[in-house]
């Protein structure tokens, strides 16, 4: 709800269109109060002293003794206020790092100068992001070239989008409507054109919109075809670990470490298979770096994620 002033689009406060926006704004107003209080206090004291102790009425006096209690007060009090801000801020920040388990995953690829979006059901779009209201959405993002940043002010979320890795952000949109999408990390010539629209829809309308997909194939289906095309099935399940039930499980590595098999792990294992070797297996997998596009990679990952339900008696646990 923006405070609309006069005619036109002029606003003083941004739209609030996600649950997270409330958390951020609450904290923002707390900080605004503190800022207003101390700014007025200091400015007020400066003006007050400058008038009250002006040269014409105030003679030069011997200096007052130093007051330790005063120094301690204005050291400790701001420290306490800062710690409150820190803890509150860290709690809101932690929310941004913990998407709910049932979040809808949408894949985003940034490139100079556009956003490419892929929905699990198969529909793709450019510079637009259609999402249902009332449902948590997680964006799994990467870049094909330089660093970008996916920023929707009305949701109060922002996350750099880096080449060579996945970063993610999540939000739960509340109000159907159209909101600005900006690239917020300078990315070259047409940085200011790397903008778009986040379209929040009623869930039924979103479902209808998804169904209009021209290809009709979901990411999982496309991913399964790619899985065979790239020959992944030749080894996985025999010479290499089975991928059934892999996603979101804990994988024991050759060096004794344990990692969680999330999207970043799958991505790295496909592009740089030697980075993390699963305990008990040979390093026979070739790299697929440069052989598949970011979109195809996402489709294969989405296919592997779809296998999570078929968790077998895990052969990779064997020594």
């Amino acid at each position: 709800m923006g405070i609309l002033l006069a005619a036109g689009h002029f606003q003083l406060f941004p739209d609030q269109a996600s649950l997270f926006a409330n958390d951020v704004d609450g904290l923002f107003f707390f900080l605004l109060t503190i800022t207003a209080f101390f700014s007025i206090l200091i400015a007020g004291l400066i003006v007050f002293f400058s008038v009250k102790y002006r040269r014409s009425v105030s003679p030069v006096r011997p200096p007052p003794p130093e007051k330790m209690w005063l120094e301690l007060t204005w050291t400790i009090l701001p420290l306490c206020i800062c710690m409150v801000i820190f803890v509150w801020g860290a709690r809101v920040f932690a929310l941004a790092f913990h998407p709910p388990a049932d979040a809808l995953d949408i894949y985003v690829v940034g490139k100079q100068w556009m956003w490419k979006v892929q929905h699990p059901q198969g529909r793709r779009e450019i510079n637009e992001l259609h999402i249902p209201a009332g449902r948590p959405v997680r964006l799994i993002m990467t870049s094909q070239d330089v660093i970008h940043d996916f920023f929707v002010p009305a949701f109060r979320v922002k996350q750099d989008v880096l080449p060579g890795r996945y970063t993610s952000e999540w939000f739960q949109a509340t109000e159907p409507g159209e909101y600005h999408l900006f690239c917020a990390q300078y990315c070259g010539l047409s940085h200011a054109d790397m903008i778009g629209t986040a379209v929040v829809m009623e869930p039924s309308k979103y479902a209808a919109w998804l169904a209009e997909s021209p290809s009709g194939k979901s990411m999982t289906e496309t991913g399964e075809a790619l899985y065979r095309q790239f020959g992944c099935n030749a080894c996985h399940g025999t010479k290499a670990p089975s991928l059934a039930g892999l996603f979101d499980s804990n994988v024991v590595l050759q060096n004794g470490q344990t990692v969680r098999a999330d999207e970043s792990y799958l991505r790295e294992s496909i592009l740089a298979p030697r980075a993390k070797i699963v305990s008990g297996y040979q390093t026979i997998m070739p790299t697929y770096k440069g052989q598949m596009s970011e979109e195809q990679l996402a489709q294969i990952i989405e296919y592997i994620k779809s296998l999570r339900a078929f968790r077998e008696p895990e052969p990779e646990k064997k020594q």
Binding site: V24, L31, A43, G89, R91, V92, F93, Q185
Partner: peptide, 21 residues
């Protein structure tokens, strides 16, 4: 003073997400 106080918004993780950049 005002610049420093607005720095608190940026040091504060939750608000920085929105205002940075």
């Amino acid at each position: 003073t005002f610049g420093g106080l607005t720095g608190l918004f940026l040091a504060c993780l939750g608000v920085d997400i929105h205002v940075t950049g």
